[in-house]
Amino acid sequence: MDLYFQRLRGGLVYLFLITAAFLSIFPFLWMVLGATNTSADISRGKFGLGGALFDNIVSFLAFADVPLILWNSLKIALLTTLFTLAVASIAGYGFEIFRSRLRDRLYRVLLLTLMIPFAALMIPLFIMMGKLHLINTHWAVILPSIGSAFIIFYFRQSTKAFPLELRDAARVDGLKEWQIFLLIYVPVMRSTYAAAFVIVFMTAWNNYLWPLIVLQSNDTKTITLVVSSIASAYYPDYGAVMVSAILATLPTLIVFFLMQRQFVQGMLGSVK
């Protein structure tokens, strides 16, 4: 009897888990199959392979300058990531290695900025960008994202695991402080950089609200904006929407599967 109940419970657990896993994957499957179907078929809820893939690609290519849009997204995401990692890791290292009461206080103020919701920044930032003549440039998207208190926090936390013997030995050998950072800290902390890379890249690639405000001309738009605008037509061409969604999702999926461990580690970094 007891064994019977145990089996039943085991079965229910599997049923629950498999249902959850299936529902989680399903929209991805729907997206891939949808890219092969006509808009009418998608709106009718047809679930299966169709023959309209080529037409959908053609109609998406007609909707936007796709190579340029993808290049814009990639450029913004990579530059944001590069600058954020550089600035945040230098700061995280600085706050942890050169301790002073004043800097610790400043660090606490920096952490407070984590609480600022973006909605409260977007109006003043928009006015600032207007005054700097940066509207419709990619710098308007990149500049405000570089100073990330969260990534500074992440690097400072990780620096606590950096062996100080390395630093002291380097000092004895006469290395300057910036040389210690560049030649010893950076190579030693590779995996921290990898995790931060994944987080910043994904955030930058998926960013929507701020680019929506500052990138108004068609030649500066990102793939996220194009997905949104092609889908917001009164009668959207869902086939082309699916193709655009695949292009918007693929890079982050690839990064995820290549760096799954760092990805999860990076996400958990915030509760250590």
Binding site: A21, S24, I25, S43, M202, W205, N206, A245, Q260
Partner: peptide
Amino acid sequence: LIRTAIFLPCVSSLVAYSVLFKSMFVQDGL
């Protein structure tokens, strides 16, 4: 495998998944 599958939605872009949901939930949709 199951963990990865359940985690997968957080990899998708917010806009992309939103339009997917829109297409699945239209009146005569899937």
